[in-house]
Design a binder for these strands. Structure first.
Lengths: 253, 253
DNA sequence: AAGTGGTCTAGACCACCAG
DNA sequence: TGGTGGTCTAGACCACTTT
């Protein structure tokens, strides 16, 4: 019975991370690694109170937020359980495509098409909230899943925030993974649209004629500055974005 | 100074609604109605503790969840402020298209193409988590913004949960609005994809040839039953889905 | 120094669900 | 009836920001 509780060994009150965060991360890691499988019962709040020697409100906050994320399900009077795994790529989370592909048991590879310092054109400058003509970094890359192209990445990065970006080799690490190591986003904006690719894009993604693309456009802020502005283009027949989550009041308007 | 605090008059400890929910809804209504504008400072937690005579933890939970929704922003040491209004149609919220169009100052109209009880085909039955051949309701409608078609709605509804659905007149009220009146969703699944419309869809949406569509597919659960399964098809050049929100740890993987 | 939010505690009462 | 989660309280300490 203590096999599950052993997972919480590294919770420390001396850590700079809040306790409820440590608890969340511990549970999240166990679920995402597959250690804990869908439907499995978690320790009760009172079990955790005793095992971790923290107050029930702290446990409750951790579990409540995991419920909001959809990682666990709670049933009043019954207990907490690991939720079913989502079946789709994440729409509202910032996820690294290399990880995502790996989680589906496929092989990821990247091809960098270019990485330059350029002068921001007006439309890009507006999106980056910088003056037109500012120096910005511009990365283009194609991501493959088992050698089939699945994502075209066109990314602008603010050099004031990420000076080291231009010197990175993005064949070994994705830009998403690199950026997540470097800073902590505090705001994101997503837009999704359907577009017809032009011929060069069609070629890069190995697409048929008359096949549409799904485009995900994302801006990410840290400390009220736009850090990166990226357009991800997916072949319409090879990709779907999705999300599944428990609702709380506020999502209904 | 008490002008803002007067908004909280209707908070009641006797209500079946939790106090933190009442506080959230009060603030949310004030923001969405435009009473409180972007950047405006909210009362501090301690102000609210005194004014509402509730504990600070309760206030804190309400404000924290509003922050997660992106409705307000909080700055440590400074205060809480009304956030900027999102610029795009909601991607992760369940929003009524009639409301959404109205909020943009345009006129909404619906045209019902059909509302029938049908026998569930295998693919639909799977999505609805019902046996193949079960009786289900099937609604098709087109929504217009200032007389320009903007959304094609193809919706299946579980009659076991929503027996009255078939008798409704959906020219005066949208199916989304009707369903939200009738039940409280506790789980949602969204998928987004890009597709090429066939000729009938192109005609209904008044689209050019070779223009793609954005499709939003949504399933909604209540009490572990699928209540409705809907495919919303948008002209690619007239619509964009989006979301902007403050991030918390968990959205980074 | 004063005010703010971020977190945590150690209790409490209640509604729900299983046996 | 006993275990569970949902909510709430009345304090507390701390880090951060402005004055």
């Amino acid at each position: 019975m203590s096999a599950i509780l052993d997972s919480f060994d590294d919770i420390s009150k001396a850590s700079p991370e809040p306790i409820y965060q440590q608890i969340k991360q511990t549970i999240q890691r166990r679920i995402e690694s597959g250690d804990w499988t869908a439907g499995q019962k978690l320790p009760s709040e009172n079990d955790l109170v005793v095992a971790l020697d923290v107050s029930r409100m702290t446990i409750n906050r951790a579990l409540r937020e995991l419920t909001q994320q959809g990682l666990i399900k709670r049933v009043h009077g019954l207990g907490s359980f690991v939720a079913e795994a989502p079946r789709h790529a994440s729409l509202i989370e910032l996820q690294d495509i290399a990880l995502e592909i790996a989680q589906h048991g496929k092989r990821h590879s990247s091809q960098v098409l270019g990485l330059d310092a350029v002068s921001a054109p007006p439309d890009v400058a507006v999106q980056m909230e910088l003056p037109t003509g500012s120096k910005i970094y511009y990365l283009r890359a194609v991501h493959h899943q088992d050698d089939l192209p699945i994502q075209l990445e066109s990314r602008y990065v603010n050099p004031a925030v990420m000076p080291g970006f231009i010197d990175q080799d993005f064949t070994g690490i994705t830009a998403t993974a690199y950026l997540l190591q470097q800073f902590k986003p505090d705001e994101m904006e997503h837009r999704v649209r359907a577009v017809m690719p032009d011929q060069p894009v069609r070629d890069l993604l190995a697409m048929q004629d008359s096949e549409p693309c799904l485009q995900l456009i994302r801006r990410t802020w840290s400390n009220d500055q736009v850090v990166t502005y990226v357009t991800l283009t997916y072949p319409g027949d090879r990709y779907e974005l999705g999300a599944r989550y428990a609702t709380t009041e506020y999502q209904l308007r």
